[in-house]
């Protein structure tokens, strides 16, 4: 894959190094700390943008913060959060829509990848399937808002086929709105998994498959017993990355449903945004952020670490 780039550089630097022979005597101290020095700027930058906000959010979560001074309230924000059905609802919605959406995307992408990876036109399919992914999420949200809610194209098509009598009231139905958000996500992001799965299938050793085929295994059997188990680490990584993005879903909710109807599509990100920047209840929103942060750390330690370790072998 990188043959061309490697061969270009193999000759050039060797000659320059010969002409300028320099012996560098680095102190022991520098030698030991050099790798840390190289990685330090990136880590410091990331600490600045994660640790600082983390601590800030924790501190703020113990105050009632509107616009004026911060009033200490102890654990009040957390106690209130515990009894806030909107917060639990947002958590539930995030999990519910995320799980359904991720499952659908995974099954669809696997099906498509399995049918496409041996196809002579696989590159063509890949380019076509990529198209939705390369639109801005805010644009995709508008496409679906217009198609399903404002211009009612979907209803119109169903009416033309005689499947329903009148326009569907998607907007006022909780499950209709949830389905719309899920569909939007599936449409845009199934290609993400598809591309990864195709690459993984193409990278598999064909001889194993060939041997199974000679033994008379059908393609379904080969897929279930050979290809799929071999792909497990890849599937894990892909689902983890996609899962994170789904649980942080914001633009779609912001544009298509605004969390409605009856908070039925409000995700946790939207809950924090609404509490903080619509009602300016920053302390309370920070408390919700802290709980999200704790959940994120747990998931990162348990799931993400394992997935990436197994994929890298």
């Amino acid at each position: 894959m990188h043959d061309s780039s490697l061969s270009d550089t193999r000759s050039a630097p060797a000659t320059t190094a010969v002409t300028k022979t320099r012996f560098r005597r680095r102190s022991k101290w520098l030698r030991a700390w050099f790798p840390y020095l190289l990685v330090a700027p990136a880590v410091i930058y990331l600490l600045g943008i994660t640790l600082y906000p983390g601590i800030y959010a924790i501190v703020q979560s113990f105050y009632a913060v509107k616009f004026g001074p911060w009033n200490p309230v102890g654990f009040n924000n957390y106690v209130k959060l515990w009894g806030d059905y909107q917060f639990w609802g947002a958590l539930w919605n995030t999990l519910l829509m995320g799980t359904i959406s991720l499952t659908l995307q995974c099954v669809l992408a696997l099906t498509l990848a399995f049918h496409a990876y041996r196809d002579p036109w696989v590159r063509g399919w890949r380019i076509i399937f990529l198209v939705p992914m390369l639109f801005m999420p805010s644009a995709v949200a508008f496409i679906y808002k217009l198609m399903f809610l404002d211009a009612r194209v979907f209803s119109d098509i169903l009416i033309r086929f005689g499947l329903v009598d009148g326009n569907l009231a998607i907007q006022s139905s909780i499950w209709g709105s949830r389905a719309l958000l899920i569909l939007t996500d599936v449409w845009q992001w199934t290609p993400f998994l598809f591309i990864i799965f195709v690459a993984a299938l193409q990278g598999q050793d064909e001889e194993i498959e060939e041997a199974a085929r000679l033994d008379g295994a059908t393609w379904a059997k080969i897929f279930w017993n050979i290809s799929l188990p071999l792909m497990r680490p890849v599937i894990a990584v892909a689902l983890v990355i996609r899962g994170i993005d789904i649980t942080t879903m914001f633009a779609n909710v912001f544009i298509v449903t605004k969390g409605g109807p009856a908070f039925g599509t409000e995700t946790i990100s939207y809950f924090i945004y609404r509490t903080g920047f619509k009602f300016f209840n920053f302390g309370y929103a920070s408390a919700a952020s802290v709980i999200m942060l704790v959940l994120t750390i747990i998931v990162a330690q348990v799931v993400v670490k394992r997935a990436f370790k197994s994929a890298r072998g």
Binding site: I49, P53, A57, T248, F250, I272, S289, M292
Partner: peptide
């Protein structure tokens, strides 16, 4: 360190949004 760098990707923008806004 490698994993710490990776894990910052897991952070939901909404979690850090408020502190970053104030910062």
């Amino acid at each position: 360190i490698g994993f710490y760098i990776l894990s910052t990707r897991m952070m939901a923008p909404a979690i850090v949004a408020i502190p970053i806004f104030f910062l």
